[in-house]
C-alpha cells in the first residue's frame, strides 16, 4: 500500500518536473519565434540605414552589414545634387495643407451630421461610404487631371492637395465617432448661453475635439506623406514639384549617370525618417487608430 503511494508520488513529481521543462521549452521556442519575426520586421530598415552609409563600391560588393567607412556624404549628395531638399519641402507642403484642409472639412461635416437631422443626410453618408468601397483604380486620375487643367492647377501642388483633401471619407468617419462622444448637453448649454450653430462649433466642439484632431491629423498626414501615384501623375514632367516618394522612385532610372544604390537608400532613409521618428513617439496613437477601425 505504502509502496504504491510512494510510486504515485514519484510519478507525479516526475510529471510535474517534465511539465515544468515543457513549459520552459515552449517559452523559449515562443521567444525565438517572436524575436525572429521582430528581426525580419526590422531587417530591411536596418539594411537600408547601414547601406545608405556605404560607398557605392562597398554596397555592391561588400558582404558585411556595417559600413567599413561611414559615408555621411551620401546624405549631403542626396540632399543637394539629387534634389531631396526640394522633394522634402514639397512633401511637407502637401502633407501639411492636406491635413489642415481635411481636418477643417471633416470636422465641419462630422459636426453637422452628428448634431442635425438635415434633409439629405442619409444620402450624404451613403455617398461618403461609397467612395470608400468602390475603386476603379487609376481611371479616376485622368478626369481628375483634366479638372485641374480646367482650374489651371495642374502645374501647382495645390492640385494634388485639393484631390487629397477631397478623399476625406475615412477622416470623416473617424471624426463623426469622436463628435458623437461629446455630450449634447454641452451644445444645449451653449445655446442657452447665446451661442449659435457656428459658435458652438468653434467654442465647444473644436476645443473638445483636440485629442481626436491629433489622431486624425496623424492619420491624414501619414497618408499624404506616403502617397505615391497621385503626385507622380501630376508631377511626371515637373521635377521641381515632385515629392519624396516620387523623386525617390525616379532615382531608379538614374539622374544623368547610372543608378546609384547608395543614393537611393539615403533618399529612402530621408523619406522614412520623419515618419519613423513620429512613430517612435506616438506609436500608441498610430496603433489606436488601426485598432479603432475594428471596434468602431
Amino acid at each position: 500500500m505504502s509502496t504504491l503511494h510512494a510510486e504515485t508520488k514519484i510519478a507525479s513529481a516526475q510529471t510535474a518536473g517534465s511539465i515544468k521543462t515543457k513549459a520552459l521549452l515552449s517559452r523559449i521556442l515562443l521567444w525565438i519565434f517572436l524575436l525572429l519575426v521582430a528581426a525580419l520586421a526590422l531587417f530591411p530598415l536596418i539594411l537600408a540605414f547601414f547601406g545608405s552609409l556605404k560607398s557605392n563600391l562597398e554596397l555592391t560588393t561588400g558582404t558585411s552589414l556595417l559600413p567599413k567607412e561611414w559615408k555621411f556624404s551620401n546624405y549631403a549628395q542626396a540632399w543637394t545634387s539629387a534634389n531631396f531638399a526640394r522633394f522634402t519641402w514639397n512633401s511637407v507642403f502637401i502633407s501639411t495643407f492636406t491635413t489642415i484642409g481635411t481636418l477643417l472639412i471633416g470636422t465641419m461635416a462630422a459636426y453637422a451630421v452628428a448634431r442635425v437631422d438635415f434633409y439629405g443626410k442619409r444620402l450624404y453618408v451613403v455617398i461618403q461610404s461609397c467612395t470608400l468601397f468602390i475603386s476603379i483604380g487609376a481611371v479616376v486620375l485622368r478626369p481628375q487631371f483634366d479638372l485641374m487643367v480646367a482650374l489651371h492647377l495642374q502645374k501647382s501642388l495645390w492640385g494634388v492637395i485639393i484631390i487629397l483633401i477631397s478623399a476625406h471619407a475615412t477622416a470623416f468617419f473617424m471624426l463623426i465617432g469622436f463628435v458623437r462622444a461629446i455630450s449634447k448637453e454641452l451644445d444645449e448649454a451653449a445655446f442657452i448661453d447665446g451661442c449659435n450653430f457656428y459658435s458652438v462649433y468653434f467654442r465647444v466642439i473644436l476645443p473638445l475635439l483636440t485629442p481626436a484632431l491629433g489622431v486624425t491629423a496623424l492619420w491624414t498626414f501619414r497618408g499624404a506623406w506616403n502617397e505615391y501615384i497621385l503626385p507622380l501623375v501630376f508631377t511626371m514632367t515637373q521635377p521641381a514639384l515632385q515629392t519624396l516618394t516620387v523623386g525617390l522612385a525616379g532615382l531608379k532610372y538614374g539622374v544623368g549617370d547610372a543608378a546609384q544604390p547608395q543614393l537611393m537608400l539615403a533618399g529612402a532613409c530621408v523619406s522614412m525618417l520623419p515618419m519613423i521618428i513620429v512613430y517612435i513617439f506616438a506609436n500608441k496613437t498610430f496603433m489606436q487608430m488601426t485598432a479603432g477601425s475594428v471596434k468602431g
Binding site: I105, M108, A112, F118, I136, V140, P143, L147, I163, S166
Partner: peptide
C-alpha cells in the same frame, strides 16, 4: 446651417470622387 457645413465636403466629393466614376 447644417448644409453650409456639409457643403464643402459634399462638393469636393462630388467633383473629385463621384464625377470621375461617371466619366469612366
Amino acid at each position: 446651417n447644417a448644409w453650409t457645413f456639409v457643403a464643402p465636403s459634399l462638393i469636393l466629393t462630388l467633383i473629385f470622387g463621384v464625377y470621375p466614376v461617371f466619366w469612366a
